[in-house]
Computed example of a mutant assay.
Amino acid sequence: MVFLLVGLLLLSFGCSLIFARETWWAAQQFVDRLKKQVSERTLVWEVSQMGLGVIAIVIAIICIWQGVERI
């Protein structure tokens, strides 16, 4: 059951990284303002968000698979 829950949370996190990048960019700007740094949205940032989203989705699928097998 824990694997299933973790998998669903990771799936939503990964999808949000891919499909809600504006929200994550706003969060990044907020953190940078707290650190008194300048934010710059570059191609590297975009690709890293997509890559992290894909990795989170793959791990989520593995966790969900394990959770289903244990039920």
Rank of each mutant, 00 (worst) to 15 (best):
F13V: 08
G53N: 10
I18S: 04
M50N: 08
W45R: 12
L9T: 05
A27G: 02
L11W: 10
T23C: 02
V38S: 13
A60K: 09
V47Q: 07
Q49W: 08
S12M: 11
Q37L: 13
A56H: 01
C15T: 04
M1N: 11
G51F: 14
S48I: 11
K35N: 09
V58N: 01
L10V: 03
F30T: 09
G53C: 10
I71S: 06
Q29D: 06
L4M: 12
I61L: 15
W45C: 03
Q37S: 09
I59S: 02
F19V: 02
R21I: 04
G67D: 04
D32A: 15
W24D: 00
L11R: 07
Q49F: 10
L34N: 03
L11C: 06
V2H: 04
I18A: 05
Q28K: 12
L9M: 13
F30W: 15
V2S: 04
M50E: 05
L8M: 10
T23L: 12
T23I: 11
M50S: 07
S16P: 02
W25M: 06
L11Y: 08
E40T: 13
Q37T: 07
G51Q: 06
L52I: 09
K35H: 11
S39D: 04
R70I: 05
F13D: 04
Q29H: 08
L43D: 05
A56V: 02
C63M: 15
A60T: 06
L34W: 10
W25R: 13
W24A: 02
W45A: 08
L17S: 01
F13R: 06
L4E: 03
V6T: 07
V47N: 02
S39F: 15
G51A: 15
K36I: 06
A60F: 08
L5E: 03
Q66T: 01
Q66F: 12
V68S: 01
Q66M: 08
L34K: 10
F3D: 07
I59D: 01
V31G: 00
L5A: 12
I57G: 06
I59E: 03
K36P: 00
T42D: 04
G14L: 10
V47L: 14
F30N: 07
G53H: 13
V2I: 12
V38T: 15
W45D: 08
C63H: 15
Q49I: 00
V58Q: 01
Q37D: 04
I59C: 08
L11N: 05
V47F: 14
D32Y: 14
T23M: 08
V58Y: 09
D32L: 15
Q28T: 13
W65Y: 09
